[in-house]
Write a protein that binds this DNA or RNA. Structure first.
Lengths: 154, 154
DNA sequence: ATTGTTATTGAAATAGTTTTTCAATAAGTA
DNA sequence: TACTTATTGAAAAACTATTTCAATAACAAT
């Protein structure tokens, strides 16, 4: 069963959290975007639904949703944190070290054998995973090649 | 050939970087610890070798070493950034969502077929990877089980 | 050894992100 | 409608990271 805007509201209510307008605005922002967002971007979009939301509430709501497993926190540069709906993709990202663009890629292969093995070894219950490949994207590679940067001429 | 303290110094000199005492202190700190460190921790250890190093230099040196591929920047909570020698482990981490402890695990299996496939598809040159499994460690799981936290009694 | 050049440094200032505090508000219940 | 209290926004605080800049110290050339 996919996690939807409505099912998340239900979940919150079930657990005794109040369905406040700021919270709903943050949730909408996340569900309307099918990509990850920085907290600041979440704020901007949430304000389209409820103009008086503050950044503090955005942080608090994101933290709550992460605890509940609705969103996934990913590592993006610069600034460190981005949030994506946990349903999107599978936590597989390509990040370019040069331009810092982030590309999501569908993880067709299956990491679960590995994960099961780790669990047995360590006692960890693995709830999520993040696979981040870093390198140089095609665009930056071309740019570098045409203008190589050396510190010293031998 | 493994990257050592000495070989890194050579590499820096070859590229025209000066072998200053602050830099050497930061490098020592990294090579003496066989685990990842936060910038603040790098500072503490570096000061054992050269008391007047400043945090700014630590950041600058870490940035330089990352560019050169000597250290790897990893994502750790809280605070976001940790640095580990690139030779250590293979960028495979288990992080506990509850206590935020980080455990490194040896990635015995090989991700290179996947990586090659991604490269072909996207044009990315993948230089490094980070596989982070998040979940609940054995200790926290036991603690939770004995004192479950519910927001509401049904 | 001494000098000159300049990469590098530390301190302070700045920028940016995330968290805490707290009185006021509003969601859900009675 | 009133009550209870989780939740909020604004301000302040706590951190983390970067920029600026005069002073310093590596290193090369003498």
């Amino acid at each position: 069963m996919p996690v939807t805007f409505a099912s998340t509201l239900d979940m919150l209510a079930d657990r005794g959290y109040r369905l406040t307008r700021p919270r709903q605005a943050v949730l909408r922002a996340l569900f309307e975007d099918d990509d990850w967002l920085r907290p600041e971007e979440v704020l901007t979009h949430a304000r389209e639904h409820f103009p008086s939301v503050g950044l503090v509430t955005v942080y608090r709501t994101l933290g709550l949703l992460e605890e509940l497993g609705v969103v996934r926190r990913i590592h993006v540069e610069p600034g460190c944190h981005g949030y994506a709906l946990a349903g999107l993709g599978h936590g597989h990202y390509l990040t370019c070290r040069s331009c810092h663009r982030v590309l999501e890629f569908p993880g067709r292969e299956d990491l679960s054998p590995l994960i099961r093995q780790i669990s047995r070894h360590t006692g960890f219950v693995v709830e999520d995973h993040l696979l981040e490949l870093s390198g140089t994207c095609a665009t930056c590679r071309r740019r570098r090649r045409s203008a190589p940067r050396r510190r010293r001429e031998p």
